[in-house]
């Protein structure tokens, strides 16, 4: 693991390469720990008038407490995020044929689009996560206002994201895959004062 506790933790890292795993910023126990994952992702868009039926079908299939509003319903390996009226992102850690699963569940009530190659997620945990995310977002992410299960689609540091609070001190941020390096740089720069431990695949290959 690289040690980048200098005043400029991004020094020498090409802007279009994924920064390597390691400790960044303030030394000691990190205020924020971030790791990336590549869950299976599909987009569900209810056909006109079918939003309630889609909510019901997803609820019965995945046991998620779902409604047609911006929130994260998490059950087991499945997460369903409301991103617009009648539109849901479904994430699975295990179902490689999420598209087929959803087609079978939803029938003609919704269109389903395979999105797995489009996104990465950042799992961000620690005492200072809301302070870090607040540096890039224009919405109130204080834990007093943004509760476990709340989800938003918004912009962080000019990068379009969907983020939700998955636990008391854990958050997930869904970012377009080609923005992975940029969002990682935002995390490093913004978490430097609290210390960041980055656990990712490193800079080999994808830029």
């Amino acid at each position: 693991m690289a040690d980048r506790s200098s005043h400029d933790p991004l020094a020498g890292i090409a802007f279009d390469r994924l920064p390597p795993a390691g400790a960044y910023g303030a030394p000691g126990e990190p205020g924020v720990v971030a790791s990336t994952a590549e869950p299976f992702v599909a987009l569900v868009l209810a056909r006109p008038g079918k939003a309630a039926s889609v909510v019901d079908r997803l609820h019965r299939a995945f046991s998620v407490a779902l409604a047609d509003r911006p929130h994260a319903a998490i059950e087991g390996n499945t997460t369903v995020i409301g991103t617009a009226p009648g539109r849901f992102l479904v994430l699975s850690r295990t179902d490689a044929d999420l598209f087929g699963t959803l087609r079978a569940i939803l029938g003609t009530d919704a269109t389903v689009t395979e999105q797995s190659d489009g996104y990465v997620t950042f799992d961000v945990t620690g005492d200072r996560v809301s302070d870090v995310l607040a540096k890039g977002a224009l919405i109130d992410l204080d834990p007093v206002a943004f509760h476990v299960g709340d989800a938003v689609t918004t912009v962080i540091a000019h990068i379009g994201v969907t983020l939700w609070r998955s636990g008391e001190k854990s958050w997930r941020v869904l970012v377009g895959r080609s923005y992975e390096a940029s969002f990682t740089r935002f995390l490093i720069a913004s978490a430097a004062e609290y210390g960041l431990r980055l656990e990712n695949k490193g800079s080999e290959g994808r830029g």
Binding site: R69, P70, A84, P85, L138, I139, V152, T153, T154, V155
Partner: peptide, 11 residues
């Protein structure tokens, strides 16, 4: 109506 109050630059 769906997302809540948002800064104009999102629009």
């Amino acid at each position: 109506p769906y997302c809540g109050e948002r800064d104009a630059h999102e629009f």
